[in-house]
Every structure is written in C-alpha cells, then in structure tokens.
Computed example of a mutant assay.
Amino acid sequence: MAELSARLPSLSDAAAVVALRGIAASIGDGHTFVATPPRPKFPVEFCWFGDQLAVVRATAAHRTLIGTQLVAIGEQPVADVQGRLQQLIPQGENAGYVLAQSVELMREPEVLSALGIPPRFRFIDTAGTEVAVTLGPGDEPLLTAEHAPLSMQRMDEPFWFSHVAERDAVYVQFRSYGGLEANAIRLFDDLRQQPARRLIVDLRRNGGGNFLAGRQWLLLPIELLGLVAGQLFVLVGRRTFSASMVNAIDFHRETEAILVGEPIGARPFGYQENGWFTLPGSGLRVSAATRLYRFGPEDADSFHPDQQIDTSYADFVAGRDPVLEWALGA
C-alpha cells in the first residue's frame, strides 16, 4: 500500500483504481473487491472453451465476430493477457472462477489501458481467416448467434421458463434473485396447470444473491412437488457463485436433484457476505467478506456435479448445449 501511495501522483485515475482493485484481489476471496462505477465495456463477450477463447455475444455492429476465436490483444497473445489479469482476480476461489472473471476483465477498457494493452483485438474465424479490429466501449445490447441454444436465449431476463414439450420438461433459466418471489410463483402456478415429468433449473449464469430466498421460493416448493431422481436437474458451472452455489448444494442434499455441468466457480468452504465501507479519498465503495461458511470440506476446491460435462468450442459453433441436452435426454 505504501508503494502505491508513492506512485499515485504519476498514475491516471483508471490506473489508480486498477491498482486498488489488485490490492483487494490479493485478499483472495470473491466477496472482497473494490466496486467501480458502471462504465461502457467493449462490445463483445468472451468465453473460454478449454484453451480456446471465443466470442459468444456481440453488438449488432460486431455480430459477425460471434463464433470467432480471440488470439491476441494488442501484441500480446491471449494467454499472456490472461496471465497479466491474474493480479486482479482473487486466487482463493478456484480455476473456474478465474476463467469467468478473466473474460469480464478483458471487456473493461480501463483495465487494458492500465496494463498498457491497446484495444486492438485479433480474431480467427472458423475458416482460419484472421480479423483485426480496434474496439471502443459502447452501451448497445449484446446479441447471441441466430442458432443459439435455448439456454442462451433471452439473455437479459433474470428469470424465465419454457416448456420443452417433446421431452415433457420445463426448463428454468435462473440468472438473478431479483424479483424471485413473483417469478417463482409464476413458475409453480404454471406447473400446477401444466405439469411436466422433469424440471431443469439452470444456475450456470447466476452470480448470487440471497440464498435464503432461493430456499424459500424454489427449494421448498420443489420439495413439495415430490420430484425424484431423474426428474429434477440443476445445471451448474464456473459462473455459479455465492448464493447460487449454496442453493445448488441445497438442491443436491435436500432433494434428489442431479447436478450437471462444470464444477461450481466457488469454494464451498469460504468467506461470503458483503460488508461495505467507503474509501475516504476516492469515495470508492469496497466490499470485504464478513462471514465464513462451511458448505463442504475445507480442502474442497469446488462442489462438483454428479455428471460433469464440458462444452467445447465446436459445440458452441454448432449451436449445441451438451449440458442441457444431457439433462433433457438422461
């Protein structure tokens, strides 16, 4: 901290904030961080598929980039960029968490600027052709591929569900705890009127909220439905974090739910709950984790699904979601 204080006069505001974020990240848990004001991001969203980094969403102006692989930013290969971003990512969670956070940081112009990386992005399309684009931040909505699977539709909605008639199933996309009570009531009213043989709850893009609300409005009603093994599936992955991790474990332990997907992006034994304070000089808000939870063994790196399935780059390009496909066809 003393070293940063000495450098502050020579740093831009963005570089100073990034340095503070690095200090918070050094604590190690995902609930301790410096909150930055919302700012426009680069108009693309990435996802790691093994060691391949692909564009999974983009604005209308850059939609042709969806499905391409990002190979470099500026003059640096993406693996090197990934390595430099480690200083801003808490290392006390797990490898999935690091992957999920790195792609978010790559979308932040201030972060790349602070690291001295120009926003010149180099992509390779599925035909092997290289495309280089200088990107600027923007606020336009991100779109998915036209052939995107069910799980990547309606990406801006916090909670929605759909009947998959040919499988006698209901698929529930649960991305946010906001408005959960009303959304859950709608779901169970619908299930009473049109029952289904299997229920699939997708937590793969749920970054957390109030796990007590999840227990009250989802877990208890689902228990009352009396679903048994082979009828209830919970989809999890690297973005399943905090409260959604807790509720995924709840489903696994208290119902006969089958967890499907990647290992969850958080340690089940770790610090959670945000305790907030304000830095006096900058006015920035800082969260510090305040409570240790023990939802699994202390040495567990993650809570692992019953059926682990990794989505490949080829799956994504083909418009397939093998995790959801498995749950629908198991």
Results as ranks from 00 to 15, higher is better:
94 N>Q: 02
110 E>M: 11
96 G>D: 04
23 I>L: 14
298 E>W: 03
330 A>F: 13
178 G>L: 08
124 I>W: 05
224 L>D: 15
307 Q>T: 13
122 R>H: 14
144 T>V: 09
241 F>E: 00
88 L>F: 15
199 L>C: 10
251 F>Q: 08
144 T>L: 01
273 E>A: 12
197 R>C: 05
24 A>G: 10
166 E>G: 05
291 R>S: 10
240 T>F: 00
116 G>R: 03
293 Y>H: 03
159 F>E: 02
302 S>T: 15
65 L>C: 02
3 E>N: 10
48 W>A: 03
212 L>F: 08
121 F>G: 07
320 R>G: 05
246 V>P: 01
190 D>T: 06
137 P>D: 13
207 G>T: 12
238 R>Y: 09
67 G>I: 02
217 W>S: 01
92 G>Q: 01
280 P>T: 13
308 Q>E: 15
270 G>K: 03
83 G>T: 09
105 L>R: 07
56 V>T: 15
171 Y>A: 03
124 I>E: 08
193 Q>W: 06
108 E>C: 08
149 P>N: 09
15 A>F: 08
5 S>H: 12
39 R>G: 09
166 E>K: 09
214 G>Y: 03
85 L>T: 13
298 E>P: 08
34 V>A: 10
41 K>V: 13
214 G>A: 05
13 D>M: 07
111 V>G: 01
52 Q>S: 14
226 G>E: 10
2 A>F: 10
45 E>R: 15
239 R>N: 06
74 G>Y: 10
283 G>M: 08
261 G>Y: 00
166 E>P: 04
177 Y>S: 02
153 Q>W: 02
296 G>P: 13
69 Q>K: 13
64 T>E: 14
183 N>S: 13
210 N>L: 04
205 R>F: 14
